[in-house]
Write a protein that binds this DNA or RNA. Structure first.
Length: 578
RNA sequence: CGAGGCGUAGCGCAGUUUGGUAGCGCGUUUGGUUCGGGACCAAAAGGCCGCAGGUUCAAAUCCUGUCGCCUCGACCA
């Protein structure tokens, strides 16, 4: 490819805060079409194709069979599984010309089961896995960050079918390792997997593959002592309280206009850990109030509460019908129009401050075990930095942000049961297979690589995903010697199968180098009157580790050697497959 | 869905308060001079001022509606 013919403009001005979005826009990789909808220009499409090739190889290596499921589907399929009703407005629903309900695929469990259900009726076919790389549409309420969070995107999604939970678990481990291989081969060995909440997918065990970065939209809890890692939505929160030796009597104190935890604690000279706070939600289906008491320093995880209640909830806005004394809600003597729950962060605590259910007053000396005997505690608190690791008990929890690039789920029989997929087992019994599903966002992976591998001038693509392995910068193409040499090298590299981009334009050196930085080819060859004068080409790497003269006669071999070296560096990071 | 902001040349913006010839920078085209980190001179092309109504002799500008985009929140496999 010659830069003079390459479609896409590169420009200088910073446009966005998120660096991958900034560089990929400035470098002519992506062009926005609408909210969360992008076209990919040739450089990005080439990167995506390389990522997809890596994914295909690793999916094939764990016995995957590539298929293609439809993007637009009859809604009947989704009515069978129940998700036509249960999934919110991120599922794009529409009608065809005959008035039939249709959906755009946001995930393909239904389609995968539909494909497999009549052609896998015997146990002898199992286990098997099908996968596809295809467009998903999710009508996200808020797209942002370039390719990080979009409404339409390319995803690899895979679905495995098993005759037992044990077989699923063994395959799940293989897939986990395949994912590690994919990310390492794409130049992101630092990707971590974390235990996750399985959300609307159903099923129990699931992991998310996270690229850790401050711009990430997910919050991750990590234990430095034992290596425990989980999405904060799934991380168990362990909170210990020392029961005080001397329990104080429950007594009312005036707190005037102080209502927040902070203000009340300051006024009474205690810390937030010694306060019992109340948080109010409402259920979406019937607007019934849900009141949760927890320790003053912890946050209620809406995800955990949602999972516990098995119902959608939202923070309560209008409390006028709840019969609550807002600002002074306390557990004792409460007659609220609400379902009341107590978080485990209150267990064993004593001598707490709590609301008195009376304006301007709180109570001191509240001890749950004494004052609220026989209550059941639930666990809906969010894990905190510096908190106790649920795995090893160390006070070593750290909280970071991450981008969810991939995920793997043990689905179980949720879809095969609702959709009626069965096979005959060894004894001739008709049973439902057990499923797993496995996704990777191709665009998110590309953006994450860019986010991880760039400098102030542009992306530094790992050679395995770079749009071009080599870029030739010919300075002064009006110089016949330069022009002849560059043309010849370009032809030689192309013939040898090297992916080469040739900047043949008559632009100033600064312009050419800036464009080359934005295009991010890991290897660069500079041919100019200066290099010609010393009988050499200049070979550099985008990461600036190498800068040396090479002999024109030996240029091809030098490039091939360097490609091999860079590829070797990446493959050294790839774990053994299982 | 809630709050705020913006739609004017390929991109970034000014002009709108106070209605009266549609402007600037970057980019593009042509010619010339430059040439190892986004050069310079000269000339030129390029706009249904988001869209639809209304007010007016006259609307980018005032009014009504509508669509789109951005930021923050809610939400999210």
């Amino acid at each position: 490819m010659k830069v003079s013919k390459l479609l896409g403009e590169r420009y200088k001005e910073r446009a966005y805060e998120i660096e991958s979005q900034n560089l990929m826009t400035r470098g002519g990789y992506i062009k926005q079409v609408g909210n969360g909808i992008y076209s990919l220009l040739p450089p990005a499409k080439r990167i995506a194709a390389k990522i997809e090739k890596i994914i295909r190889e690793e999916m094939d290596a764990i016995d995957g069979q590539e298929v293609l499921l439809p993007v637009a589907m009859p809604a009947d399929l989704w009515k069978l599984s129940g998700r036509f009703e249960s999934v919110g407005s991120e599922l794009l629903r529409f009608r065809d010309r005959g008035g039939a309900d249709m959906v755009l695929g946001m995930t393909h469990e239904e389609a995968a089961v539909h494909l497999a259900m009549n052609i896998a009726g015997t146990y002898q076919k199992y286990p098997f896995m099908i996968y596809q790389i295809q467009t998903k549409f999710r009508d996200e309420p808020r797209a942002r960050g370039g390719l990080i969070r979009v409404r339409e995107f390319t995803m690899k999604d895979a679905y495995s079918f098993h005759t037992s939970q044990a077989d699923l678990e063994a395959y799940y481990a293989r897939c986990h390792r395949a994912y590690e291989c994919i990310f390492a081969r794409a130049g992101l060995p630092e990707m971590v997997s974390v235990a996750s909440d399985s959300g609307m997918m159903g099923g129990k065990v699931s992991h998310e593959f996270m690229f850790l970065t401050p711009i990430g939209e997910d919050t991750i809890v990590l234990c430095d002592a034992c290596g425990y890692r989980a999405n904060i939505e799934a991380a168990d929160s362990v909170i210990h309280n020392e029961t005080p030796a001397a329990l104080e009597a429950l007594r009312e104190v005036e707190t005037f206009d102080k209502t927040s935890i902070e203000d009340v604690a300051t006024l009474l000279g205690v810390c937030p850990e010694q306060v019992c706070k109340a948080v109010v939600y409402q259920r979406n289906m019937d607007d019934r109030f849900v009141l949760v008491f927890c320790r003053g320093d912890v946050e209620v995880s809406e995800t955990k509460l949602r999972n516990f209640l098995k119902a959608e909830i939202h923070p309560a806005a209008d409390l006028s019908n709840a019969n609550l004394c807002v600002g002074s809600i306390g557990p004792a003597g409460l007659s609220a129009n609400a379902d009341i729950y107590y978080d485990a962060s209150l267990r064993d605590a004593g001598n707490l401050v709590c609301g008195a259910n009376r304006d301007g007053f709180h109570r001191m000396g509240f001890t749950p075990a004494r004052d609220l005997p026989n209550v059941a505690y639930i666990s809906v608190a969010e894990a905190k930095p510096g908190g106790i690791c649920p795995e090893c008990g160390a006070m070593a929890l750290r909280v970071e942000r991450g981008i969810e690039v991939g995920n793997i789920f043990q689905l179980g029989k949720r879809y095969t049961e609702t959709m009626g997929m069965t096979y005959d087992d060894e004894s001739g019994q008709r049973v439902h297979p057990t499923m797993g599903c496995y996704g990777i966002g191709v665009g998110r992976l590309m953006a994450s690589v860019c986010e991880a591998k760039h400098d102030a001038y542009g992306p530094i693509w790992p050679i395995t995903v770079a749009p071009w392995q080599v870029q030739i910068c010919a300075l002064r193409t009006d110089d016949p010697a330069v022009r002849t040499a560059a043309d010849a090298l370009y032809a030689e590299l192309q013939t040898a199968g090297v992916e080469v981009l040739f900047d043949d334009r008559a632009v100033s050196p600064g312009f050419m180098f800036s464009d080359a930085d934005l295009l991010g080819a890991p290897i660069r060859i500079i041919i100019s009157p200066k290099t010609m004068a010393r009988g050499a080409y200049e070979l550099t790497t985008r990461d600036k580790r190498i800068r040396e003269d090479i002999a024109p006669d030996n240029a091809l071999q030098s490039v091939l050697d360097l490609i091999a070296k860079l590829e070797m560096e990446i493959s050294a990071q790839v774990p053994d497959r299982i």
